[in-house]
Computed example of a mutant assay.
Amino acid sequence: MTERRLIVMRHAKAEPFAADDQDRRLSERGVLDAAAAGRHLAATQLVPDHAVVSPAVRTRMTWDEVCRASGSSASVSFDDAIYHGDTEAALETLQSVPGQARTVILVGHNPTASYLCHLLDDGAGDVDATSGLMGGFPTSALAVFDVEVPWLELGAETGRLVGFHVGHG
């Protein structure tokens, strides 16, 4: 078994409008889908012990549902770089994850989440997961990577895609 797992998740379905984009809340479907994603993580023994979450309301709500449904007691950091930054900023944030973290989840936004997955993928992963990822990265999508390098060394092609799942409540 790999030493580390990284789960890259796009937030669940959000309401289309808010006065400020960061204030958009999850829709009813989004709440159900995020909980379904959390149940999937629990069922596949991928319960995060550390979470990196965008500070936007919809990502916080997504993490709350995933956390509750998976039974996670993860330490969590809310990082503006996941909301405002690009793929490089997200990667730098992941490189600063505590070294003892074993199953890390990043809950963010597209297109950054999708681009990050493609950057990390070493191309030798699960065929079905790769096919799923190539089909798009919808809301509530989870891409799971085996990571053999320390978090500090995370970079291009350092993850092996081993799972892809879209939460549906």
Rank of each mutant, 00 (worst) to 15 (best):
K13P: 06
A90R: 00
A129W: 00
S27P: 11
F78D: 10
D122T: 02
A35M: 10
R68T: 14
D64C: 04
D33T: 06
D126K: 05
I105L: 09
Y83S: 06
L41I: 01
S77A: 12
L152C: 13
S96F: 04
A56V: 06
T103R: 10
D86R: 11
V57L: 12
A129R: 01
V76Y: 06
G85Y: 02
T103N: 13
P16D: 09
A89E: 10
T93M: 05
T93S: 09
T139C: 08
L46C: 05
G38M: 02
A14I: 09
S54R: 02
A141T: 02
S75A: 13
P111E: 14
D80P: 11
D79Y: 06
I105Q: 02
P55Q: 01
S70W: 06
G123C: 04
A124P: 07
A35L: 07
L120H: 01
A14H: 07
T59H: 05
R68P: 09
G99Y: 11
H84V: 14
G30K: 04
G71H: 09
S140A: 15
T103G: 07
A43K: 12
A124D: 14
D64E: 15
D49P: 02
Y83L: 06
V149S: 05
G71S: 11
E28P: 07
Q45S: 14
W151V: 01
D64M: 13
R24F: 03
T93V: 13
G108R: 07
M61R: 09
D86E: 11
T103L: 07
G135C: 13
V52G: 06
Q100E: 12
H11R: 08
A89F: 10
H11Y: 03
L94Y: 05
H11A: 01
T87H: 01
D121P: 05
L133H: 04
G99R: 15
V104C: 07
A113V: 03
T62H: 07
L91V: 00
D146N: 12
A42S: 15
W151E: 03
T130G: 14
L133E: 01
A18Y: 07
E28Q: 15
P138G: 00
A101W: 12
E153R: 14
D20W: 11
Y83A: 06
Q45G: 11
F137D: 00
A36E: 10
R25F: 08
A36P: 08
R58I: 02
L119Q: 08
T59L: 12
D33S: 10
E153V: 11
G38C: 02
S70C: 09
D49Q: 03
G30W: 04
T62F: 10
V76L: 14
D146A: 13
F145P: 04
L26H: 07
S73C: 14
H50S: 13
A89W: 08
E153H: 13
